[in-house]
C-alpha cells in the first residue's frame, strides 16, 4: 500500500520535473531520462545490498566487487573467442562460486560474531577482490562490449531516442532486468516458503533453528543470490562506462546504490528499487545543474567540482536526518 503511494508520488514528481524541464532552454530532460537509466543499475546493486541486510543485518561492502569480478570474467571469456552468452554464463557461475566461498570461508565462521566484525570482513573481502583484480588484470582500462551494440553496422543508433537523447539498448536491458528482478524478489519474499524462511532467519535465528530450518542453508542462499545480483549489475553496467578497471563497480556504483538503499529504508526491496532510480535522477540533475547554473562568471561545476557526488552526500544526510527509516522502511 505504502509502496504504491510512494511510487505514485515519485512518478508524479518525475512527470512534473519533465514538464517543467521542457520549458527550460537546454533543460534537464535528457539528464532526467539518463538518470532513470543509471538508476536502474544503482537499483540492481541496491537490491543485493538490501537482500544481505535483510538476511544478516550487515552492510555488504563487497556487493560492488561481485560486479567487477563478473565483468572481468566476461571480458576474459570474450577475449578467448567464446560467444557472448557463454561469457555471461561463465561470469555468473564464477561470481556465484566466489559468493559461496565468501559465505563458507568468511561469513559462516563469523555467524555468532558482532555485526561490526562481519561488516569489516566484507570490507576485507572487497579489498581482497580489488587486489586480485589489480594483480591479475593490472590497472590499465579494458573495454567491454555491450550485449547489443549501441550502433548497428550501418552506423545508425540501435535502441530508442528520448528528448533527442539516444538510449543505448544496454540501458533498456538494464531497466527491464531491474523491473523483472524486483518483481521476482518481491514475490519470493512474500509468497514462497524459502523466502519467508530467509526473512524469519533474519528476525529470530534461534526460533528458525527450533522450527527445524538450517540457518546455514539460509545464509548460503542469501550470499549466492547477492553475488548473482551483483554479477548481473556488473555485466550490464561496465559496457556502459566504456572502461573496465579494477574496483570500477565499487567506486562508481556502490555508494549511489547504498544511498538508494538507505532512501528506500535498507530493508525494503521495492524501496531499493525506487531509491536506486531516485538517486540516479538526483545525480543526473546535479550534473546538469553543475553545467547549467553559474556563480558569478564561473559555471557551478567549476566552483564546486563533482556537484553530482555532493548532491548524493546531501541527499544521504538529509534522509538520515529526517527519516532514518527511509521512505519505505519500517525501521532504521
Amino acid at each position: 500500500m505504502r509502496t504504491t503511494i510512494v511510487s505514485a508520488v515519485l512518478v508524479v514528481l518525475l512527470g512534473l520535473g519533465l514538464l517543467v524541464g521542457a520549458g527550460v532552454e537546454n533543460g534537464p530532460n535528457p539528464f532526467i531520462t539518463l538518470g532513470v537509466m543509471n538508476g536502474a543499475v544503482f537499483g540492481l546493486v541496491a537490491l543485493g545490498l538490501v537482500l544481505v541486510y535483510k538476511g544478516t543485518r550487515v552492510f555488504n561492502f563487497a556487493q560492488g566487487e561481485f560486479g567487477t569480478i563478473a565483468a572481468y570474467l566476461l571480458f576474459l571469456s570474450i577475449n578467448r573467442g567464446w560467444p557472448y552468452w557463454v561469457g555471461i554464463l561463465v561470469a555468473l557461475a564464477g561470481t556465484v562460486l566466489i559468493g559461496l566461498v565468501l559465505e563458507r570461508g568468511v561469513i559462516r565462521p563469523l555467524i555468532n560474531a558482532p555485526r561490526i566484525n562481519v561488516l569489516v570482513a566484507t570490507i576485507a573481502a572487497a579489498l581482497f577482490m580489488i587486489g586480485m583484480e589489480i594483480l591479475i588484470a593490472r590497472i590499465e582500462p579494458r573495454s567491454l562490449s555491450p550485449i547489443i551494440a549501441a550502433v548497428d553496422s550501418s552506423g545508425n543508433p540501435n535502441g530508442v531516442t528520448v528528448f533527442n537523447l539516444p538510449i543505448e539498448p544496454q540501458r533498456l536491458i538494464a531497466l527491464g532486468v531491474l523491473l523483472s528482478l524486483g518483481g521476482v524478489l518481491a514475490w519470493f519474499f512474500s509468497k514462497t516458503d524459502l523466502g519467508l524462511a530467509v526473512l524469519a532467519t533474519s528476525q529470530d535465528a534461534f526460533a528458525t533453528r527450533v522450527m527445524g530450518i538450517g540457518i546455514e542453508r539460509m545464509s548460503r542462499f542469501i550470499w549466492v543470490s547477492a553475488a548473482l545480483l551483483g554479477a548481473i549489475a556488473g555485466i550490464l553496467y561496465v559496457p556502459l562506462t566504456g572502461a573496465l578497471t579494477p574496483a570500477v563497480m565499487t567506486s562508481n556504483i556502490l555508494i549511489p546504490a547504498f544511498t538508494g538503499a538507505v532512501i528506500g529504508g535498507m530493508t525494503s526491496l521495492p524501496g531499493a528499487f525506487v531509491g536506486g532510480i531516485v538517486i540516479g535522477v538526483v545525480q543526473s540533475v546535479g550534473l546538469w545543474a553543475g553545467g547549467h547554473f553559474t556563480i558569478g562568471e564561473k559555471a557551478l561545476q567549476e566552483v564546486i567540482p563533482g556537484v553530482e557526488q555532493v548532491t548524493i552526500l546531501l541527499v544521504l544526510l538529509a534522509v538520515l536526518l529526517s527519516r532514518p527509516q527511509g521512505l519505505l522502511g519500517k525501521e532504521a
Binding site: F59, F61, I255, F258, T259, L313, L316
Partner: peptide, 10 residues
C-alpha cells in the same frame, strides 16, 4: 560507515 564512505567519495 555509510556516511564516511560517501564523504570520502565526495
Amino acid at each position: 560507515a555509510l556516511i564516511t564512505l560517501t564523504y570520502g567519495f565526495v
